[in-house]
Simulated assay, not measured.
Amino acid sequence: MGRMIDEPLERLRVAARRTRELALSRAGTGLGHQDADDDVGTVGTDDALGFDPFPLLEALHHHGVRAVVIGQVAGIMHGSTELTGDLDLLWDGVPAHAPALAAAFTSVGARLVDETGGLVATHPGFFLRPRVGFVSPRASGDCCTPALPWGDLRVRGFLDRAITAVGPGGLEVHYVCREDLIRMRRALGRPKDLRRADELDLSVSDRRGSWPASDSAGDRQRE
């Protein structure tokens, strides 16, 4: 059995590497993250090819943007064993913060996706929408504000309760706390969300999940 990985960012690096390896071992699907089904998720799409969230996370840190990681990347940081092929973010939606956000996305060659699926430049004004899709050479996903409807959830409070993981080089990555991620999962209610909420529920609140460093037959290769 491989060594156990305790740090959230190291878990994420290992998971991203596994996602890339899995995507290279299969034929292309022609699907993007927006086309993912409700069970397997984005690990089954072509956005899993070359998936690496760290260039964008590092750019956000460099530009002083406090964007909080949500979705399954946050789940992995909490110890989930399911893989993902996209990166979802939540920020406060304050107009004064949009230029720095746009600069971070531009620095990694990201483009935004409009309502028709067309690519548009990373203009600060586009980020003020409740949700905007993005594509970049290493990671695609959605960037959301608290204005996006989440049922009865008060998502703005999730920003205040977010956890910060600090890497060896000083990289800071903010991610939604376990309890709030479970609430988001149950509010969305898709099969993959309910499954992942159950997985997180099985852990005590202070549990630090682990990943074996080498692949094993027991690894779950879902989003």
Rank of each mutant, 00 (worst) to 15 (best):
T45R: 03
Q221I: 13
R11A: 05
L153R: 13
R131C: 12
G30R: 03
F158D: 01
A27Q: 11
L128N: 02
A96V: 09
D219R: 11
G141F: 00
A48Y: 10
P55S: 08
R138D: 11
G41S: 07
R26H: 07
H62N: 02
S25R: 12
T122Q: 10
D52Q: 03
G28E: 10
P99I: 15
Q34C: 03
R129M: 14
E82H: 00
A165D: 09
G41M: 06
K192M: 01
A103N: 14
S210H: 14
P95G: 05
V68P: 08
P55L: 06
R11Q: 10
D92G: 02
G75F: 05
L57T: 08
I163L: 14
T106S: 15
G209W: 13
D92C: 07
V132H: 06
D198T: 12
R17G: 14
P191T: 05
S107C: 05
C143N: 06
I182W: 08
A67K: 02
T29H: 01
E172R: 15
A27M: 05
E7L: 06
F126Y: 15
P130G: 05
R138P: 00
P8M: 03
P168S: 04
P8T: 02
S80R: 09
L202R: 12
S210T: 14
L24C: 01
P212A: 10
T29S: 08
D201F: 10
L22N: 04
P168F: 02
G44Q: 00
R111P: 01
R178G: 05
R17S: 10
E172H: 15
L153P: 11
G118Q: 15
D206C: 00
V132S: 05
A15E: 01
T122N: 13
P191L: 01
A100C: 04
M4V: 01
M4P: 00
L171V: 10
R111G: 06
G32T: 13
D198L: 12
A103C: 11
Y175C: 07
F158R: 01
A48M: 10
D47M: 04
T19V: 13
D88M: 07
A36M: 04
M1A: 11
R196N: 15
A67D: 03
S107G: 04
V69R: 05
V135H: 14
E179G: 01
L153Q: 08
R156S: 11
E21W: 06
D86S: 03
G41E: 09
I163K: 04
G93A: 07
G2T: 09
L194F: 10
T122H: 03
W150I: 01
L57S: 07
M77V: 00
V68I: 08
P212N: 08
V40F: 13
D52C: 01
L112P: 02
D92Y: 09
H174E: 11
H123F: 11
L181K: 10
G209L: 14
L194I: 15
A104D: 00
D88F: 04
L56G: 06
G75D: 04
A213S: 12
D88C: 03
L181R: 09
F126T: 13
A165Y: 08
A147K: 15
P55M: 05
I70L: 12
L22I: 01
A98P: 07
M1G: 08
A110E: 06
G157F: 03
G32K: 10
V155I: 12
R178D: 06
L119E: 15
S136D: 06
G79D: 03
L181Y: 11
A147R: 15
E58L: 02
C144E: 15
H123T: 14
R3K: 13
V65R: 08
L87T: 13
D47Q: 07
R183W: 10
